[in-house]
Structures are given as C-alpha cells and as structure tokens.
Design a protein around this nucleic acid. Structure first.
Lengths: 246, 246
DNA sequence: AAAAGACCTTGACGCAAATCAAGCTCGCCG
DNA sequence: CGGCGAGCTTGATTTGCGTCAAGGTCTTTT
C-alpha cells in the first residue's frame, strides 16, 4: 500500500508476509485472474511491474473517492467493497476473493472502499502502467472487458435481489452465490466458509444483523443448512435454490 | 428485430417509421453514443452494416435468456430493461435513452428483457459483425469498456439505493438521476418528462406503485417538485439532492 | 482463571411500506 | 356526447423487517 490512506488506522495497517513471493509464471492464481490473458513473455515483463502485498484483517486497500493509483488482483483472502452514505449507512457492493480484479482501469477515482475481511494477499500494479499495457495488448483489454461484463451481470443479480426478494430469499441466494464463487477457487466442499461477519452479510443484503441472524436460524431449523463455526453447511441444495430464485 | 420474439404480442410488434434514415456521418446521436469512437472512414463502413428500426410502445427488442444476435444503439425514445422472477415479480434494471448502448458484446445471451416504453428508434448491428470490429479497432473496444465502466458505476448507485435508502430518498434520487441523463441529450429544462408509468418507476425503485404515488404527492406537498402531465418539475434542486443522498 | 470485549442470537415491540379497497382523471371509441 | 378502461391517487389496515433490549458464546487479555 501507499501507506498514506492507512497511517491513521493503526491496527489494520500492518503489512505482513511480504517475503518470498512467487513470480507470475508460477502463480497458482494466474488462470483464475486477469493474468490469464497474458502470454509467457508478457508474464515475465509483468513480474517487473507487479508488487505483492499482504495485509492483516481490516486493512484499507483504497477508499471511496480516492485517486486510483493502482489496480489489484486478489491472490488470497476476502475483501469487502462498500460505499457509505453521509449519515453512516453502509452498503457492501460485493466481496472480492482469490482471482478477482479490483480497481478502475479507465476511471480516475475509486467508487468504493476496499477493506480486508481477513488476512489477504494481493498483487498490485500502478494504474498508469496497466493503462499502457491495455493500449498495447488488445487481448488484455478484451479480457478486462469480459471481467467487466461478469461484474455487470452480478450487479444486476444483486439489484433484483435487493429490489424484489424477501429476507429468506436474499440469504439463500447469498449462500449459494458465495458457494459458487468459492467453488471456482478451491476444492468444492459441502461446508461454505463465511469469513465475513453477520454485519457484513446484512450490509450486503440490505438487511439488519438481527434479520440475517434470525433468517440463518430459520434455514437451519428448516433443515436447509447447518450452522458450523465460521461457516455453514448446505443440507438441501435444491430447496435452497428454489428459495433463492423466488 | 428478428420478428420471432414478437409475433405473439400483436399490438406491440408493429414496426414503424423505417423510411428515410440518415446515415451515420450526419447522425445527431453520434457523439452521445458508442459511434463517437469511430473515425470518418469507419462511419462510412458502419453505414453498410447498421440497420435502423423504429418501434411503437411496448415492443420487445430482445428477451432475457435469448441468444444475443444484435447489439443496439438508441437514437430516440425510452426503453425499459428488466428481469422477471419465476413468480412474476419484476425488477427494472434501468431505462435506456438516446445514445445508450444495449446488448452484450462478449456474452452469448441477453441477461434482461428490453421493451420500448414509448415510440423508439434504434440502430442495430449483428453481434458477429460488431465483435469483428471490436477485434480490429482497439479504440472501439476501449470506448465500449468506458461505457461498461459507467454502467458498473450506475449499478452500484442503484445497489446502494435499493439496499439502504427509504422511499422518499429513492424517488428523489430517481428524479435527479433521470434528469441528469436527459440533460446530456436534450436542452436542460426545468420540466422532467417521465414517459414511463408509475408502475415502471416502482419496479425500478423496489417499491409498489402506491408508495411511489404517495411519495411523489408528498414531495409536491413539501414544495420540492410540481407534478405536471407526463412529468414533474423540480422546484428546489438543493433540497432534493440533500434528500436523495441520505 | 477471571474479566472484558467482540460477535451472535433471541424476544418484545414499533413502524415504513405493502396490501386491500375505493374513487378519481383522462383519453378513446362507439 | 357518454361510457369504458387504463393509469393514478388516496385512505384503511396489515405485515415483514427494523429497533430496542437482554443474554449467550467464544476469544483475548491480564
């Protein structure tokens, strides 16, 4: 990190685990991320501009309104992306995980704040460098647009959820979609780890923490899921999907 | 239109006003649309592949789940973009107006349905042709990505609105944002035309028609706006902005 | 091992928006 | 011109989720 936006948030600013970073060519996240668009030679040049960083939980990667100096690729951990209203209401826009691209390529300013939920590792590149690469490598530009297309699609799902679904449908949809995204990244397990807090889930689903808690309890009572430490386990995917889709 | 998805919706399928279309070089919508990225020579080649179409109100341009054969640029009128839940609940994702780009370039299928609100005119291009142009013209790709970036930004605004704002804030925000978009396109007027129905506004804001109606009445009672036939007039922009932002 | 604090759950109650139900306005057509 | 239907408004009532409050569990600290 630049250090600047972090200096006043002491416990969250500690940078960790910066040693022995692998290079791009051997990176296990590569095929999940934007780097998948790069060829062998490009990966080597990428190594020279990319900066690996680790952060403890609650670190701020960048803030809403701040000039976007870097773009990021997540290699480990979970990041919450959110906007704040003047009076403090918070809406979480999404959770970024391994392989996700973060930051705005063409816009000057960040449109939301990104904060680590747990311990994270990211690769970052100066935006100016990235922009130059975009101009030189049409396939990278295309990959980026492909990613943007998926982002638009997901946003629309979230708009439908927030505009027209009730609490139970929202929670069911969240559990399923988070599971789906995790499945791309790790071995598909029956247990879904939920590193974010109930408050985070509430702020993502447009609910309160109490409603999220009650709804999860209800899903468990109805034998659709089981609550386990730091996650849940799905008992009946089909019924959960039915619920989630309305 | 392909004609296929329309054949059973008789009053809405009538295609109108297909005669004497101007060419791309003299198009007054050009600088507002994706075509702004095209040079003089490219505009001429564009003329050969672009198809101008007019539709009466309630025509379906394309449907959720349908294979995306064309991409569109709106030259006149208003289009509602929406998704339906299995039980009929509708969420309007957005309203497209003059200059807006519609359709998915890289995805195979449409993610929402597009239906004309009033009389519209659009230019459409076969998606395969457009894809080919994207591969050949990096500046077009970049322009498209720029448009996608704005779309993501707007979606996030809508997510915050739906997740965290009350009815009054939602309506105020809608009126201001629609005004803002119209201002790009026509001479900024105090009166904001609202071609869409109260039901459309409700389905866009995640409310019911009654709540939208009551809220507009309240804004009028509070002297923030005046209701006029087919639109509203803003009396106090500053207070409306304050309201909209929470 | 006790105390403190963060996070989560559950219950009682309140309220903003949904639902139910008229009645109004305006354009259209016979 | 009069009647009909679509769209809009307004009022009465209900309800799903928010708010307020209390207690539980687990982790961290000392």
């Amino acid at each position: 990190m630049t250090g600047k936006p972090l200096q006043d948030i002491s416990p969250s600013t500690e940078k960790v685990n910066e040693s022995h970073v692998p290079n791009c060519s051997t990176c296990t996240t590569r095929h999940l991320s934007i780097c998948d668009a790069l060829g062998p030679k490009e990966l080597v040049t990428f190594d020279h501009v990319v900066q690996h960083r680790g952060f403890a939980a609650k670190a701020v990667l960048f803030e809403q309104g701040q000039k976007a100096d870097f773009v990021f690729s997540v290699s480990e951990g979970t990041i919450r992306l959110f906007r704040l209203l003047p009076d403090g209401r918070r809406q979480i826009i999404g959770f970024a995980i391994k392989g996700d691209f973060l930051g705005t390529a063409l816009a000057e300013k960040h449109e939301y704040t990104a904060e680590s939920v747990d311990h994270i590792r990211v690769c970052r590149i100066p935006r100016s460098t990235f922009l130059q690469m975009l101009d030189e490598k049409p396939h990278l530009m295309k990959k980026l647009h492909e990613i943007a297309g998926r982002e638009i699609h997901d946003s629309q799902d979230q708009i439908v959820l927030l505009g027209r679904k009730n609490a139970e449908e929202r929670v069911a949809a969240f559990l399923l979609s988070f599971r789906e995204r995790l499945a791309r990244v790790l071995t598909r397990s029956v247990t879904i780890p939920l590193p974010m807090s109930r408050q985070d889930i509430a702020d993502y689903l447009g609910l309160t923490i109490e409603t999220v808690s009650r709804t999860i309890s209800k899903l468990a009572r109805d034998k659709l899921i089981v609550v386990v430490p730091d996650g849940i386990r799905i008992l009946d995917v089909n019924r959960l999907v039915e619920l989630a889709e309305g």
